[in-house]
C-alpha cells in the first residue's frame, strides 16, 4: 500500500451542505490529501448528492464502495444509509449497524474509526447541524492529537451540532464558513 494520505474530514448535518460544497469547489489541489465529506442526508433523496458535486475543479468526487482503498486526490462522499469507517490497513469499510443519534452515516462512527485506526495524519471540521452527532467523535479526535475545527455557532445555520462540540472541548480553530479552505491549508501545514 502507498503512503497514507492526509485525511481531511468535513462533517455536518442541517445547514452544512452549502458550506461543504463551497469548500470542495474552492479547495486547491494538494498532493497526498484525501477529503471525506460526512454529511447527514435524506435516506431516499430525489437527486443523489453526488450530482451536486459534478463540477469540482481539482478533485475527483466519489461515493466509496466497501473496502475501497483511501487514495489521494479524491473527495469521498459518505453514502446514504451506511456508516463509513476507516480501517488501519488503509481502506474504508461500510456498515449497516444501527443509526447513531438517528444518523447513518454517523459522524461519531467515522471520527472514532479514524482514531481507532491511528491514521497517521488527519484533521476534521464540524459544521452546522441540528443534533449532537459528531461532538463526541470530534472530542476523541482532538484528544488523540488531530487538528480540529468547529464552525462558529454564531454563523452556523443550525448551531446545535457545533455548540455540542464546544461544550466538550476547545478545538484548534473556531471558524466561519468562508474560512474552510484556509483552515484546511493551515492543518496541512502543521
Amino acid at each position: 500500500m502507498t503512503e497514507r494520505p492526509f485525511l481531511w474530514v468535513v462533517a455536518g448535518s442541517a445547514g452544512s451542505f452549502t458550506p461543504a460544497r463551497q469548500f470542495v469547489q474552492e479547495m486547491p489541489y494538494r498532493p497526498q490529501v484525501a477529503i471525506v465529506l460526512c454529511l447527514h442526508r435524506m435516506r431516499k433523496p430525489r437527486v443523489p448528492m453526488i450530482e451536486a458535486f459534478s463540477r469540482i475543479p481539482y478533485w475527483q468526487v466519489v461515493e466509496p464502495q466497501d473496502k475501497d482503498p483511501i487514495e489521494s486526490g479524491k473527495v469521498y462522499l459518505a453514502p446514504a444509509d451506511y456508516h463509513l469507517l476507516v480501517e488501519r490497513e488503509g481502506y474504508f469499510s461500510l456498515s449497516v449497524d444501527e443509526p447513531v443519534h438517528f444518523s447513518r452515516p454517523s459522524i461519531d462512527v467515522l471520527l472514532e474509526s479514524v482514531v481507532e485506526a491511528r491514521w497517521p495524519r488527519a484533521g476534521a471540521v464540524l459544521l452546522s447541524g441540528a443534533n449532537r452527532d459528531g461532538a463526541w467523535g470530534l472530542y476523541l479526535f482532538h484528544r488523540a492529537g488531530y487538528f480540529t475545527a468547529v464552525q462558529d455557532p454564531q454563523e452556523a445555520e443550525v448551531p446545535t451540532m457545533p455548540r455540542a462540540a464546544l461544550e466538550l472541548f476547545t478545538p484548534n480553530r473556531l471558524c466561519k464558513a468562508h474560512e474552510l479552505v484556509q483552515v484546511c491549508l493551515e492543518a496541512l501545514s502543521l
Binding site: R88, D97, S113
Partner: peptide, 12 residues
C-alpha cells in the same frame, strides 16, 4: 471481521 466495525459493535 473488519476491525473498525467489530470493535465498535463490541463496545456497544
Amino acid at each position: 471481521y473488519a476491525p473498525a466495525s467489530l470493535k465498535r459493535r463490541l463496545g456497544t
